[in-house]
Computed example of a mutant assay.
Amino acid sequence: MLKVVICEDDFVFRDTLNEYLEVILKEITNQFEIITFNCGEDLVENYPEDVDIFFLDIEMNKLTGMDVARKIREVDDNSEIIFTTGVINYVQDGYEVRAYRYLLKPIQFELLKEHVNSCIKDIIKRNENNIVIQNKGCIYKLRIDEITFVEVINKDIIIHTINQSYNTKTNMKIIEKELIKYNFYRCHNSFLVNMKYVEYIKQSTILVNSVEIPVSRYRIKKFKTKLLSVLGDIIC
Results as ranks from 00 to 15, higher is better:
Asp233Gln: 14
Val132Thr: 15
Phe83Thr: 07
Asp77Pro: 01
Ser118Leu: 15
Ile72Lys: 08
Ile6Trp: 01
Glu146Phe: 04
Gln108Trp: 01
Lys141Thr: 14
Glu22Val: 00
Glu146Trp: 01
Ile159Tyr: 09
Asp67Gln: 10
Phe54Asn: 02
Leu231Lys: 14
Leu192His: 02
Gln108Phe: 09
Asp233Glu: 15
Asn89Trp: 07
Lys221Pro: 07
Arg98Val: 13
Lys173Met: 06
Thr16Cys: 00
Asp10Lys: 03
Leu192Gly: 01
Ile162Asn: 08
Glu49Gly: 07
Leu43Pro: 14
Phe11Arg: 04
Phe109Ser: 11
Asn135Pro: 04
Val152Thr: 14
Phe109Asp: 04
Lys202Gln: 12
Tyr200Arg: 06
Glu80Ala: 12
Ile81His: 13
Lys177Asn: 12
Thr16Arg: 10
Lys155Tyr: 12
Ile53Val: 09
Tyr166Cys: 08
Gly40Ala: 05
Asp57Lys: 11
Ile81Pro: 09
Met195Tyr: 00
Ile35His: 09
Asp52Leu: 00
Met60Gly: 05
Asp15His: 08
Thr64Glu: 01
Ile107Ser: 10
Gln108Cys: 08
Gln203Val: 02
Thr84Trp: 04
Thr84Phe: 10
Glu114Asp: 07
Ile158Ser: 03
Tyr166Pro: 06
Glu151Tyr: 06
Val208Gln: 08
Ile133Ser: 10
Glu128Tyr: 11
Gly94Val: 13
Thr64Trp: 05
Glu176Leu: 00
